[in-house]
């Protein structure tokens, strides 16, 4: 059982991993809950005791008020933003895995393209937002909202591609020798080994990829001003409505962490042979 023990000790969860006693798990949940409550109480107390202006420094209760008031607009705007982010995310995901498979199968092509992939991944891709909007608008002015879809793909694709590449290449020499020994074809390499060995990496890419797709969409909406959460948030600046700004952050944050948590759950179910971490490999 030594193998399993060392695995648990070297776990990737920031908290040092599961100590695997049910009792301590309960304590950790309780502490986490306590942390959230303390934060809210402290925030409310400061706002009330100092008598801060709720327009500039709203208390949690003021934020809930603002949330209630913006709720109808928010629910109108959300589908636009989520549609762009989710569709863009799925396109980027499928495209990245497919591209990674083709590139890993053709090592020459991979070596030739690697400087471009690394290069595009290290520059601030978000700076291209106005250009993307300009081009989409050039094709059809009435379909400017499509730029948000394109932005989601553009921002999320490269990190997910690199994650998938790392994953498919994550194969030790012994396994590689074994495959060579049995004369496995490229497709068999993927089917029996690479697709599985790559899973932890792909899932890490999927978690950050979803957040990136949301980022691309929101910035697209910031700049283009098409109806959605992003344009709602940027319009808050002119009105100096902090309460509303925080309400929007909360809603989008809960959706986003919900999706990330869902991906993490699927990951832990699927990859039973090693521990997963909600924030990916850091």
């Amino acid at each position: 059982m030594t193998a399993r023990d060392s695995r648990t000790l070297g776990s990737r969860v920031p908290g040092g991993g599961r100590i695997s006693i049910e009792n301590s798990r309960l304590t950790r949940w309780a502490l986490s809950g306590l942390g959230v409550i303390l934060l809210l109480v402290f925030w409310q107390a400061v706002a009330t005791l100092l008598g801060l202006d709720p327009q500039y420094f709203p208390s949690p209760i003021d934020v809930m008020d603002a949330l209630q008031r913006t709720w109808p607009t928010l629910t109108d705007a959300l589908p636009h933003t989520l549609a762009a982010a989710v569709v863009g995310y799925l396109i980027a995901l499928v495209l990245s895995i497919f591209t990674a498979m083709v590139l890993v199968a053709n090592e020459r092509l991979l070596n030739a393209l690697m400087p471009f992939i690394i290069g595009v991944n290290t520059v601030p891709r978000i700076a291209l937002t106005p250009l993307v909007i300009y081009w989409v608008g050039f094709i059809s002015l009435s379909a400017t909202f499509l730029a948000n879809y394109v932005m989601a793909v553009w921002v999320a694709f490269f990190p997910m591609l690199i994650a998938a590449l790392d994953g498919f290449k994550n194969i030790d020499e012994a396994t590689e020798n074994m495959l060579a020994m049995y004369g496995a074809t490229t497709w068999q390499e993927f089917k029996f080994v690479r697709l599985r060995k790559g899973l932890p990496f792909i899932f890490d890419g999927m978690k950050s990829g979803f957040i990136l797709a949301m980022i691309g969409t929101v910035v697209g909406e910031f700049v283009s001003g098409t109806f959605g959460i992003g344009s709602m948030a940027s319009s808050v600046i002119g009105q100096i409505a902090i309460g509303r700004a925080i309400a929007i952050v909360l809603v989008l944050g809960f959706i986003s962490s919900g999706v990330v948590f869902l991906i993490y759950q699927i990951e832990s179910q699927l990859i039973f042979w090693q521990e997963s971490s909600i924030m990916g490999e850091e």
């Binding site: 986490s32 306590l34 942390g35 969409t217 910031f222 100096i240 902090i242 944050g253 990330v260």
Partner: peptide, 30 residues
Amino acid sequence: IRQMALPVVIFAYAVPHPILAPMFIIWFII
């Protein structure tokens, strides 16, 4: 502290950060 901060850290990690930009800007306008 680590355990207490965990939910906030996960939330802050998962929230698409541009959505927070207006907040920062307004505060410094004020």
